[in-house]
């Protein structure tokens, strides 16, 4: 395949200036992630994994080094273009769900499409399709406060995949969930990856990392270990075909 890798980081560093002290959160990480891969980034707190995630997600800009997202150097993009990149190429899933309160699940999922400028019934159709994919088809008109943690996180995943982005970025997506909801949400990630989407998730739980095809260990802002658990082209190792679509 001639297509460039989805993510290509070379010698990326990030330095935070905290008064006189400067903190090196990321110290020269080089990483290439191919299309269709399912990567778990692991590391203890302070290892720089969230910083790396923010850089990959274009929420933050690297101090030095080069980052190509889908072959595009994001450091050269202005505010407006970065917003468009976040909108179309990246789907975010956060630890604390981050759904917009007092707004139905459906409208939350519609939001990225709204910012992409899509209108009318097509927008609604795509949003409800994404919600069905994550098994929330029957609860799309509920407010976040009326959904369980697992359901909120699945709605957030629906919001991340609705624009059909190049990568899904998840920062500790199961950190706030009980074990049942965790399995539930990981099942959704497996399925999303099985459908050919690139997934990058951050975790410190080995159980979660076992779902990934590749595990990257970070320590002190550097890559310590990079283990492939399953081929890029295949299905995720723990994937089970979903037999039931609905409320789990």
């Amino acid at each position: 395949m001639a297509a460039p890798p989805v993510i290509s980081l070379s010698r990326v560093t990030k330095v935070y200036d905290a008064g006189r002290l400067s903190v090196h959160a990321v110290r020269g990480i080089s990483l290439v992630i191919e299309r269709g891969d399912y990567v778990a980034i692991m590391g203890s707190s302070g290892s720089g994994k969230t910083t790396l995630m923010n850089i990959i997600g274009c929420l933050d800009v690297a101090t030095s080094g080069r980052y190509l997202l889908d072959g595009v150097d994001v450091r050269r993009l202005d505010d407006e273009r970065l917003a468009a990149v976040r909108n179309r190429k990246i789907g975010f899933v956060f630890q604390s769900f981050n759904l917009i309160p007092r707004t139905t699940a459906l409208h939350n999922v519609e939001l990225p499409l709204i910012y992409a400028g899509q209108r009318g019934p097509e927008r609604r159709r795509r949003a409800s399709a994404a919600l069905s994919t994550v098994g929330l088809g029957s609860r799309m008109h509920h407010l976040p406060s009326e959904l369980s943690g697992g359901q909120q996180q699945r709605a957030a995943i629906a919001r991340a995949i609705v624009t059909n982005p190049a990568i899904i970025l998840a920062d500790e997506p199961t950190g706030n969930l009980d074990s049942v909801s965790t399995q539930d949400v990981l099942g959704v990630f497996d399925q999303v990856n099985a459908e050919g989407r690139t997934v990058v998730l951050i975790t410190h739980e080995p159980d979660v990392a076992n779902h990934a095809k590749r595990v990257v260990q970070l320590r002190d802002g550097q890559v310590m270990e990079d283990v492939r658990q399953a081929p890029v082209d295949g299905l995720p190792p723990r994937h089970r075909a979903r037999t039931q679509q609905g409320v789990a």
């Binding site: 929420l59 917003a83 909108n87 975010f92 981050n98 917009i100 910012y115």
Partner: peptide, 8 residues
């Protein structure tokens, strides 16, 4: 959140 999902 809005900015993360692409609000300009």
């Amino acid at each position: 959140i809005r900015k993360a999902i692409g609000a300009r």
